[in-house]
Structures are given as structure tokens and as C-alpha cells.
Design a protein around this nucleic acid. Sequence first.
DNA 1: CGCTATCTTGAATCCCTTCAAGTCGCGTGG
DNA 2: CCACGCGACTTGAAGGGATTCAAGATAGCG
Lengths: 242, 242
Amino acid sequence: MTFVFNERESCSKCPIRHRAVCARCDTDELELLDGMKSYQTIAAGEPIIWRGDELTHFSSVVAGIASLSRTLEDGRIQMVGLLLPSDFIGRPGRETVEFDVTAVSDVTLCRFERKPFENLVEDVPHISQRVMEMALDELNAAREWMVLLGRKTAREKIATFLDMVIRRDTTPLHGAGSHSLPLTREEIANFLGLTLETVSRQLSAMKKEKILTFSDRRNFTILDLDALQEATGDDTDNALIA
Amino acid sequence: MTFVFNERESCSKCPIRHRAVCARCDTDELELLDGMKSYQTIAAGEPIIWRGDELTHFSSVVAGIASLSRTLEDGRIQMVGLLLPSDFIGRPGRETVEFDVTAVSDVTLCRFERKPFENLVEDVPHISQRVMEMALDELNAAREWMVLLGRKTAREKIATFLDMVIRRDTTPLHGAGSHSLPLTREEIANFLGLTLETVSRQLSAMKKEKILTFSDRRNFTILDLDALQEATGDDTDNALIA
DNA sequence: CGCTATCTTGAATCCCTTCAAGTCGCGTGG
DNA sequence: CCACGCGACTTGAAGGGATTCAAGATAGCG
């Protein structure tokens, strides 16, 4: 990658140019954004913003992975979303943030100050249309996850999670069904509404059933994709829709 | 209510005029919608549209309550949202529907044909801006529900549900903390990711603890709001944000 | 007034959690 | 170089909260 995350770099060469909040913008509109943007990097494990904090900037994830989560009073944590490159942080029209945002890996953000960006949402239809599209996509994803959290067994949750990981894994490096888990066991547990022990046990069980193998703790290969998808509990015509 | 759901009625007098997808529209824009709309009523319990069906119309719920849900292959059902008056059905840019929509009570819809409405989304910024706002609001609600489904106990789920019902209950008729459950025990169970027996047991337990009383199966009065909110499991500063 | 859907309650079971112990892999410093 | 320490992970055993299976109770409606 030759793109360096620096204000002098042009948006037109940005790696997420065609998927982010700017996807629908034409050259003129892009120039507006170009003049407004600034980059920020956050180290893995560090918080990006806490629930209740005032939102000073909207941002797009340009590189890395962040998580959205909520902590209950006694410390239980539920992850409510993973933010991948091109995903958007912040909600035009609200001043505070509703969930904790944390860097899962090293993260680079492309940021816009709140007020100027909110003006763009008002004035540039290509922006509000794109935010609308992205919000509706995320809404669908959130609802799919609600089905998982509310009704699926531990085994089905793990199978669905792995299926999601391999569907999203677009790294050109992964040959012959080899993939990498983006999260630790504990993070997976908080994403799936389980304990880390249950996650570990289910992965071990699937290993024993030869559905997959691990080369180390993070990297695995699917040996039996049919069995994995069978184990998700989803309607078989799911693929037809997704 | 003097408004009759008939194409001849003007949008300007519509009961959901200021909360629905048309909320930001000015008089001219409203006239466009006025000429496009048609009403449809669905009886309680009847399906409105199934997952996978082609979406011929976008619609707003004008009266009544509908549910969004998904059924797994073995029949388990998870509700992923309740659609109240002013809520929107359909996703501009997609031709099929991702979840089953069912009338919980008798429902009246205000409908727009897909293509013409999608053109409006492109041409009228006030529409896309409003859909964006509504989608972001729903996204937040969905994520809050994910926390409930993934991490809360049966008791906390019931308490949160009741708290939501009494917060949303704006009927001027309810005096002194008397409210009505909009759903059967089984529907509540499918909303909360529980069984109907567990719902019944938790409600009975709260009755025994004098947190609430039932005048019949649907109508209840909160006797101890503090105890109810204590039982939701939410962070105490939740109210400050919501 | 009885029929049926809805709801309540009880008892047994089970899946996941909790608590606990131990393993693995890796970087650090003696 | 390797012992050490630590975080991440695995595995076992016991316990518990919700489900499942099974009767009954209640209320709404013809």
C-alpha cells in the first residue's frame, strides 16, 4: 500500500474511497471533504471514545478493526458491532455517543469536525444518501445478530461467527481456506453473548469433529464448509437472500 | 380521531405527519407524497410481507402495531423489532425484504410504490435525510436490544421490556401508572429471547414482590418504579443519556 | 354456558456458566 | 540460553437459570 495517512494525501486515492461515507460524492464534493479531513491513529486495545462522551468528530475507519460495546453495571460486556475499514463512527444530529468504541487492532481514522460535517449532511444529498444506505445496512446486520443472540445455541453462534469471518475475509493472502480470527476468545465471547470458556470448548469440539483445524491460536482452516454452514442453524435459503 | 384513512385525506392532517418519513418535507414536497400514497389495512395476526418477498411498496405504519421477526429452520422465532405508528417498512435500494413483517394488532399502512419513492429518495434531500435519521435511531434501538438479548437475565429482560412499554405509552387515557401490554406472553417471549413459561414466571414473581399488579392479563399498574428500574440491570446513568 | 386460546404453575432436565486447575506460547532479563 | 512470568487459552467438575414437558386454571367469545 502506497497510501500514507496524511492530510496531504488526496481522498481520490484513499483505499476506502468507494465504500465509505464519501462513496457517492463527485469530484467537487470530494474536494470539500479533502479540505476537512484529518487522520488519527489509535493503538490496539486503546479506547477511541466512551459512551456518554461528547462527539467532537465523525470518523471513518480507514484501517484496522474497532468494536462497539456496552458494559452493564456489574461488568458484563456485550459487543454490538465490529467496525471494519469504511465503517462510520458517529450519528449526525446527536452530540454524545451511545456505545463504547475501542480499537481491537491498531486503527486509523479519517476524521471530520462535527459541525462542518453536519452542515454537509444538510447541504450535500450524496452524503445523507450514503449515510442512509450505510445505516440501513448496519441495521440489517444488527437485526441478524439479534436473532443469533436471542435464539441460537453456543454451537450455532460459533458456527455463524466463523461463517461470517470467512465470508468477510478478503485478504488476498489467505490460500485454500486459511483464515485468521480477528478477535481473542474473550472478545468473541463478548460478541456472541457467551463466556470465553464456552467459546473455547465449542472451537475444540469442532476441531475434534474435523470441521476445522488451527495452525495456531488465531489461524485456522475450514475442512468441512458444509458441516459448518449446517451448524449455523440458519434457514438453508439464507444464501439466496444474502 | 377525525382522520379517515382514505386517499382523499390530505397528508397535512395525517396523525404521523411530524414523525414519519415525511417529517422534514415542506408543503410542496408533501404534495408530491400526497399524490402517491394509498392506504392499506391488515387484520391482527395476518402477515404483511414475508422474508424474501419482493417489496412492491414502501410503507409507514399509521395506526396499530406490527412486528419484524425471523424464524429459524426448526421453528424458533426471534422478534427483531416492533413497528409503531410513524415507523417505516422497506429499504430503499433493495428489492426484497429481510424479515417477516406481521400485524400484531389491526394495522393501517400508508404506502408508496417502490420505484417512484426511490426516485424521491434520490431527488428530495428532505426524504433521504429523514430516512437516515430514522435508520440511525432504529440502529441504536437494535443495539440496545442486542445487549439485552446477549447479556441480560430473564428478570432483567422482563424489567427492561416493561420499562420500555411504560416509557412509550403516550396514550392520554392511562391514569396513575396503568398500562397495557401490547403483546401476548408468547410474543413477549419471542421479543426477549425467552420461552413463554419463563415470561409468565417472571411476571408472577414481580407481582408477588409487589412491583406491579395486573387488573387482567394485559393491563397492569407499576407499584414500585424504582424497583423495576433497579431490576433492568442497566447502568444507573442510562437515564442521563436516553 | 361451555369451548378454546391464553396463561399459570410444577417437576425434571439440560445447556451454559462458574469456579478451579493446568497448559501453551512468547518476550524479557538474569 | 533458558528460567521466569504473564497473558491467552484449554479442560474438568459442580452448580444454576432457563427450558422442556406436563397439568391445570382463567378468561374471552360464540
